[in-house]
C-alpha cells in the first residue's frame, strides 16, 4: 500500500487544545494519494481539510497515527529534515498567495531553487520556462504589489511547481480570484497534471475545483465521509 502512494495517512488523529477544550480536527483518518492524482478535499468549515494539508506538508504533527510522504514518516524527522523535504518534495499554493513581498515574480519563483542550491544559470532556464508556462514571462520583474491577484496566484503556482515536487498542496487556490481567473488557474493546474503527471491535492469549497477533480474526498468532523474517484 505504502509503496504505491506518494502520501499515506495511517489512522491519523490530530487534536488541538483550544484553551481548556480539546478539539479533534482529524479523527483516525486513513488516506492515500497516488502519483498523478488530481484530488480535492472538500467539506464544511471545521471538517479538517486544512489540518490534513498541514499534516501532509509537515507543518504540523499528528497526535497519533502516521503520515508518510514517499514512505518517509514525517513525525520522526528533525526540523531541518522536514524543511529539506518541504523544499525538495512539496509545493505549496496558498489561498492568500503568500508571495514574498520584497522579491519579484522571477525571484519568488526562483526562491525554492535557490534554497536547493541550483546554479544561477539552471535557475534562469527553469524559472523562465515555468513563468512561460503560467503565462507570466513578461512580468518577471514585477513585485507582488504590482500584480493582480490572479497574477500573484500564477506566480505562487510557478513557485510550487518549479522544483518538480512529488505533490503540490493547494489550499483554496481560487478563493481570492474572480471566476475567469479561477478557471484559467484550474486550466493551468489541470494541464500541468496531465502534461507532466504532477500530483495535486486541493482543499476547497469551490464547486469549480470539485467539478474538475478526478478524485473528490469529502470530510466531515475529521473523517472521510465519501471518497469518489471519477473518470
Amino acid at each position: 500500500m505504502e509503496h504505491q502512494s506518494i502520501v499515506h495517512l495511517e489512522d491519523t488523529t490530530k487534536i488541538y487544545q483550544q484553551g481548556k477544550v480539546e478539539v479533534c480536527a482529524v479523527d483516525r483518518l486513513s488516506l492515500s494519494i497516488k502519483k498523478g492524482d488530481f484530488a480535492s478535499l472538500c467539506g464544511p468549515s471545521g471538517s479538517g481539510k486544512t489540518t490534513v494539508l498541514n499534516l501532509i506538508g509537515g507543518l504540523d504533527i499528528p497526535t497519533s497515527g502516521r503520515v508518510l510522504l514517499e514512505n518517509q514518516d514525517l513525525a520522526i524527522l528533525t526540523r531541518s529534515q522536514i524543511s529539506a523535504i518541504r523544499r525538495d518534495r512539496l509545493g505549496f499554493v496558498f489561498q492568500a498567495y503568500n508571495l514574498i513581498p520584497v522579491l519579484t515574480a522571477y525571484e519568488n519563483a526562483e526562491f525554492v531553487l535557490r534554497l536547493q542550491g541550483v546554479s544561477e544559470r539552471e535557475c534562469r532556464d527553469r524559472v523562465m520556462a515555468v513563468l512561460k508556462e503560467v503565462g507570466l514571462e513578461d512580468l518577471e520583474n514585477r513585485r507582488p504589489d504590482e500584480m493582480s491577484g490572479g497574477q500573484q496566484q500564477r506566480v505562487a503556482i510557478a513557485r510550487a511547481i518549479v522544483s518538480r515536487p512529488a505533490i503540490v498542496l493547494a489550499d483554496e487556490p481560487t478563493a481570492n480570484v474572480d471566476s475567469a481567473t479561477a478557471e484559467s488557474l484550474l486550466d493551468l493546474m489541470q494541464r500541468l497534471n496531465q502534461d507532466y503527471g504532477g500530483t495535486f491535492l486541493f482543499s476547497t469549497h469551490d464547486h469549480r475545483v470539485m467539478e474538475r477533480a478526478r478524485r473528490l474526498i469529502c470530510l466531515k468532523d475529521g473523517r472521510i465521509e465519501t471518497d469518489e474517484v471519477r473518470r
Binding site: R79, S80, S83, R86, N98, I100, V112, L115, Q116
Partner: peptide, 16 residues
C-alpha cells in the same frame, strides 16, 4: 511571522 511561515513552508530551514 506569516512571511517567515511561508518561507519555512516552502523549504527554508530555520538556520537559513
Amino acid at each position: 511571522k506569516r512571511e517567515f511561515g511561508v518561507m519555512m513552508a516552502v523549504g527554508m530551514s530555520p538556520a537559513t
